[in-house]
């Protein structure tokens, strides 16, 4: 029987694959979205600085000094992720799963972003970027050649004051660093500011609205095949992007990450002002 779209209005705003892995509406709490903490061994001082700056996400009504609460896409709350008020600062929220079948998955979300409204001006070039990533690894019976694969995409809103407005991806991470002396924990900074590449045809002018306290929600949809470990599609609002030139960070499989299915959202600020990303909600689905 075909599901009529009005049978489940909350789900009908998504185009999920047959199996819903998670459908996170932040009126039900954090739904497993937590802070991405950096690795360490023995002491927190070992944590790479890029991760040390991260803080916990919040449940937000998008409250503003001039209009009060903006509210979520639906209901009262959205997931909020904020940076520190320092140029280049970033924050990341993550949900950690494993997969049951190495097949197609689809991430869909509604998101919006704004700088902290500390000035009575548009501030459209204050948020550097927002984006999302997966952290994936093959199953433990994959055999030789198995990979840890980290698809990244960010909307570069602004850089050095230029209102860039284009999607970027990355294929390279930083060298791995041992976190201690036990040879069990290593770290790399895959969200470093370096090595972002423009997605061919990836320019997009997103609705920003006209003052820093008005937001509009954007739809994004990212398709990935866990069998081939390849991206198979990317849509944002009314645009469908050609992903033939896209690839992910690829590194050899690691000894303790089998079947990993992590998904994360991040936000970066381009000025000494907090940047905020809001998510309401997230639907991760699979074909199994």
């Amino acid at each position: 029987m075909t599901l009529r779209t009005w049978d489940d209005p909350a789900l009908s705003r998504f185009d999920p694959l047959p199996r819903i892995i998670c459908h996170d509406d932040f009126d039900r709490g954090f739904c497993g979205w937590t802070q991405l903490v950096g690795n360490y061994e023995g002491t927190l001082d070992a944590m790479l600085p890029g991760y040390a700056q991260h803080l916990s996400p919040m449940l937000s009504t998008l409250p503003n000094w001039d209009i009060g609460s903006h509210g979520g896409f639906d209901g009262t709350y959205a997931l909020k992720l904020g940076t520190r008020p320092r140029r280049g600062a970033q924050n990341v929220t993550i949900k950690r799963l494993t997969f049951r079948k190495a097949g197609p998955i689809r991430l869909e979300a509604y998101v919006t972003f704004k700088p902290e409204a500390t000035e009575l001006r548009l501030s459209e070039a204050d948020v550097r970027s927002f984006g999302f990533l997966f952290d994936l690894q093959v199953g433990d019976r994959h055999g030789a050649g198995g990979e840890r694969v980290m698809p990244h995409l960010r909307f570069l809103n602004a850089l050095d004051g230029e209102h860039a407005q284009r999607w970027q991806f990355k294929r390279r991470t930083t060298p791995f660093v041992a976190m201690g002396t036990e040879s069990k924990t290593i770290s790399h900074y895959h969200l470093s500011p370096d090595d972002w590449e423009d997605l061919p045809g990836g320019d997009q002018r997103l609705c920003y609205n006209e003052i820093p306290t008005k937001v509009n929600w954007h739809y994004l949809c990212f398709d990935f095949d866990l069998a081939a470990m390849r991206c198979t599609g990317f849509r944002v609002n009314d645009r469908t992007f050609d992903m033939s030139g896209y690839d992910a960070i690829r590194i050899p499989a690691m000894k303790n990450l089998w079947c990993m299915l992590n998904l994360a959202f991040f936000v970066e600020t381009d000025v000494d002002k907090r940047a905020n990303l809001y998510v309401d909600g997230v639907c991760l689905s699979g074909d199994f």
């Binding site: 954090f30 001082d45 944590m47 040390a52 916990s56 919040m58 449940l59």
Partner: peptide, 12 residues
């Protein structure tokens, strides 16, 4: 009810 622990400063 919703319950959560948030880290608002770590090793600062």
């Amino acid at each position: 009810r919703t319950s959560a622990a948030a880290i608002v400063a770590r090793n600062e």
